[in-house]
């Protein structure tokens, strides 16, 4: 029996889809069987982020309405053995699926896969309720901004009200240099405010844009900082205790100089 995890944030554009793709790929890299579910009906994107957009035949709504079997709608990734995508429908809207149907689909996927990861749409309306219906655990993504942290707080409240206790937090797009200058909230600030456990921190990284342009994942890239962050998150999901990585290891020249001189 696998585990169903929903990735959510409230606010849009904080990196839910990118995180879903990379965490899923990271788990598949470690040899697990993973199903990614795009619950953003009407605005599907997980397919393009994974580079699988040309292979969609059936989608989540087809499965929910019994137009095809679940296995027919699952797209197998060619790079990662064991990674599959259940795409969202693009021409329908959030009301095309009901929470009970999502629950049923998650139950079926759980029997076949080690991990079922659901990419939740932005917002807290029916799309959100659908996405969390079949989940047993939740990962909340935020960025170090007032608006994103506020929305994360609201979502954490709603998750707990829906019996999804103790969601784990991922802070995305952190800029270590701005944090050092006092112009960006620190991880401690955010944890202090949201009072949840931290699952990981992903530094701002242009490589994300480059890999997404190509429909690739950054988690495969050995030398990428964000890739390393996603690999660490993957390991923590698997229960390994991994310390937070040194975010300024490759800081700019003066930061390195200060460190060499024992001042930093």
């Amino acid at each position: 029996m696998g585990e169903v995890i929903v990735i959510t944030s409230g606010k849009g554009g904080v990196g839910k889809t990118t995180a879903t793709a990379n965490i899923g790929a990271g788990l598949a890299m470690r040899g697990y069987k993973v199903a990614l579910v795009d619950a953003d009906i009407g605005l599907r994107n997980l397919d393009v982020v994974l580079g699988l957009e040309n292979r969609i035949v059936y989608d989540l709504v087809d499965v929910a309405h019994g137009h095809c079997r679940l296995k027919q709608a699952l797209i197998k990734d060619k790079r990662f053995e064991g990674l599959y995508l259940l795409p969202a429908a693009q021409t329908k809207d959030k009301t095309a699926v009901k929470p009970e149907q999502m629950k049923e689909i998650c139950l079926q996927l759980k029997e076949e896969f080690d991990f079922v990861i659901i990419d939740c749409p932005a917002g807290i309306e029916q799309g959100f309720r659908n996405a969390i219906a079949g989940a047993e655990k939740a990962i909340v993504i935020t960025t170090p901004e007032v608006s994103a942290v506020r929305d994360a707080d609201r979502v954490i409240g709603l998750l707990e009200a829906a019996e999804l206790r103790e969601p784990k937090l991922v802070v995305n797009r952190l800029r270590p240099r701005m944090v050092r200058q006092g112009d960006m909230m620190t991880i401690e600030d955010i944890i202090d405010i949201l009072a949840v456990d931290l699952l990981g921190v992903i530094p701002e990284d242009e490589q994300i844009i480059v890999t997404t342009n190509r429909g690739d994942t950054v988690v495969l890239m050995d030398r990428s900082r964000s890739g390393e962050a996603f690999r660490n998150i993957t390991r923590r999901i698997l229960g390994e205790p991994v310390p937070l990585m040194e975010l300024e290891r490759d800081g700019h020249f003066f930061a390195r100089l200060r460190r060499i001189m024992g001042l930093g």
């Binding site: 942290v149 506020r150 944090v179 006092g182 112009d183």
Partner: peptide, 22 residues
Amino acid sequence: LSSKDVAKERLRLVLVHDRANI
């Protein structure tokens, strides 16, 4: 009084209301 302190304080205040409103 760096901008991140301003951000944190504003968040703290807005969340008191948000959480109460819930």
